[in-house]
Amino acid sequence: MEKIGYQDVNQEVVQRCKGGDHRAQYELYKLYAKAMFNVSMRITNDYAEAEDVLQEAFVSAFKNLHSYKGEASFGSWLKKIVINAAINAVRKRRSELVPMDERTVANVPDEVTEDDAEWQVEQVRRAIQMLPDGYRVVLSLYLLEGYDHAEIGEVLGISESTSKSQYSRARKKLLEILKEPQFVA
């Protein structure tokens, strides 16, 4: 997440955006589009959907910029909008997002023996993409977006402990996938 110093840099641009300045809006877009697109990608796991989410999120952010009071960095404010939009998109697509039912949980063995095999970023990234929606969303939010379980619980409408257990299951599943033959480098 961005630090306060970063926010100060953006404050001027954000202020201009509030006035409807398209160039300022483009500046912010350029600055955040890639990061936000990857956030959206990780949650939706679908390129076209991730783009729709990104578009919706930016439009909504620029239209509702007046509600951004600067209490958090612009980046994390925007990220929250992207995450919410992405989660909504996934929910629309699949009704059984989170909490996961027992059936999926049963598929995951309790014990995953850790080995010291070297990971490649690409491996881990693709392994995350292979996780079912519910696992992928919680794991991405926790590992990559830097959300804590309280925040994840809030954004997904689940309890903090559900988020925790969901994450640990997701993590086990991920390690399991990483051990599959096609992932072993």
């Binding site: 990857n38 990608m41 390129y47 991730a50 990104l54």
Partner: peptide, 10 residues
């Protein structure tokens, strides 16, 4: 981990 980029037309 951020490997994707949106289309420029977006």
């Amino acid at each position: 981990f951020d490997v994707f980029e949106p289309r420029t037309e977006l």
